[in-house]
Design a protein around this nucleic acid. Structure first.
Lengths: 221, 221
DNA sequence: TAGATTGTTAATCGATTAACAATC
DNA sequence: TAGATTGTTAATCGATTAACAATC
């Protein structure tokens, strides 16, 4: 039995961003495995399905503690709990959505968020017809209520699905309203104070990564 | 000793994946700058808005050629053309969408794809009510027509927006149908032959990257 | 010319992998 | 015990940055 000695070193070593991304992939895979009835898994097996080496899996995890059993591997259920603690998704996170367009509405209804502990509690838009409505049980407010609602409800995470032209100004307001993390879907660079975390998802850019690979392959043949 | 030439080495040096991602960011920023009237930009300025060093910008670009002017910088319009050539988006790409749910429908209507040369030409779903419809002018076919339509139209790129449980089997069919690149939104690991490119976007994982950063910050204070 | 900035090499930094004693 | 696998250090590999001659 391993001694839980991972109390003090949690998060004081600088953890590479890539490690955190893989942590999320481990979590997702472990959840899939557990659903399928797998109880334990070795770093080698887990790495293989995700395309990583066993050493990498073990190294990544030891940034945060000792979670495995020599000779056995990792217990899926246990490791899931630990990774959720590390990522901070061992709790429920209320989330605000800004921009109730096509994409925004799809995000409001996306089941995958709820499964991982995220819950939209308020949406915001400029269009009068949308304000006052509820979409998938989430109330849509006018943009002018942004600061009020986010403050009241202590919302720390926001998802930006507004047009590129207004993304920066809305982001600025979100920061002033007290947001700590922003997931930006607008295809534009956003500048934020370094105290606020930013993740950007640009759908066209994802496709460009694909075309680059496809074109490169064609060049070779 | 012979002089190694790097004039026609486009794409035979192995290009790190991170470089390609930054290339897309350069492109997006240059397009924004050009729209705003900027004609030339230095590696230092371009790096600054994106959070990179000037050396990194120049190094990334020289994987593919010499595009700048000493003493001046880069001409935005010119560099945009060059990066598009590199990424393969100097042409139009027909794209298939599989899974016409909330997210799928939002993607069909997403303007950002068209702006960068991507065009959905066919959507597929299992539900009979959806089949035969058109959404944003894109026809929805039954899944049984997948191979037929993709073959006929020589579609090389597909976007997967189906439930996690069916993602792998649909991916397998897409590969057999001749797809070269797959953008997967299903929150599950997909295994593909190495000849097919895969980019995965997991929306919950993106939020987890944010919570990790937020929780870590809280720990410190 | 003086000032600015590129392209590129060499130095530095950081991340991944190999190896193995410890352990179950 | 024999076999399997972890946690961790050291070695390797790769990516970023600094520096500067060349150039406009």
């Amino acid at each position: 039995m391993s001694n839980p000695k991972h109390s003090d070193n949690t998060a004081d070593a600088v953890v590479p961003k890539a490690v955190v991304t893989r942590l999320s992939l481990y979590l997702r895979e472990l959840q899939t495995l557990l659903r399928g009835g797998t109880e334990t898994i070795s770093s080698n097996q887990l790495g293989k399905v995700l395309g990583f080496t066993d050493a990498q899996v073990r190294k990544d995890l030891t940034y945060f503690g000792q979670f495995g059993y020599p000779g056995i591997g990792y217990r899926c259920e246990e490791l899931i709990v630990e990774i959720k603690k590390i990522l901070g998704t061992d709790r429920k996170w209320p989330v605000a959505l800004i921009g109730v367009g096509n994409l925004g509405r799809a995000l409001l209804g996306y089941r995958g968020f709820g499964d991982q502990g995220f819950q939209f509690v308020a949406a915001f838009d400029l269009e009068p017809e949308k304000i006052g409505q509820s979409i998938d049980r989430i109330p849509v407010f006018g943009l002018e209520q942004l600061e009020e609602i986010i403050g009241q409800r202590s919302i720390k995470l926001a998802v930006l699905a507004v047009p590129a032209a207004s993304a920066q100004s809305v982001a600025d307001r979100l920061v002033r309203a007290g947001i700590d993390g922003l997931l930006n879907f607008a295809p534009v660079t956003i500048a934020l104070p370094s105290s606020v975390s930013l993740v950007g998802v640009d759908l066209a850019i994802e496709l460009e990564q694909l075309t680059f690979a496809v074109v490169k392959k064609d060049d070779k043949s």
